[in-house]
Amino acid sequence: MSDAAAMNRFLSGVEKKAFHIANLAVKDVDEAMDIVQDSMMTLVRRYSAKNESEWKPLFYRILRNRITDFHRRAVIRNRIMGFFRLPNSEEDGAGPILQAPAGYAVEPAFQVQMQATSEKLGKAIEVLPGRQREAFLLRVWEGLSVQDTARAMNCSEGSVKTHYSRAVHTLREVLGDDHEQ
């Protein structure tokens, strides 16, 4: 298989998950799309010569850096815009995450309950702290090893285990008894 074909296969395998991860982090479809596109380009330009087994942690590391850049720019933008915003405006206070409906309704039918649990879990993952969400998604969803997750997150393996453990603990608490049935 040629390098281009291998890269195409790799990117097609991660693009949707990467987009969803970026969208969870930045809450903006267009920004998430730009982040994923930029990450793809950077991987190809800088690391396509690397071994294929290294692509996934490298790709998610690039993605993470792009998301971090986005948040840095947002902080600066908010500081600048803060000078022009009136105090006590309606935009202050709860953000879109807190304003989102909780979705805790209990349905009688099992299938519907499973659906509700799934939705609740999705929202719980969405509101996890950034590092915990990263560790959880990379370990559980992308199936990266602790070592590769640490490489992608640019932290120690111990930190990955801590973030992951806390994420699981939080999700257990959010779900309560739902997943024990």
Binding site: A4, L11, E15, K16, V36, M40, M41, V44, S48
Partner: peptide, 12 residues
């Protein structure tokens, strides 16, 4: 996403 992927692969 597919368009972004194709553009990235074309860079190779």
């Amino acid at each position: 996403l597919a368009a972004a992927r194709r553009a990235a692969v074309a860079e190779m």
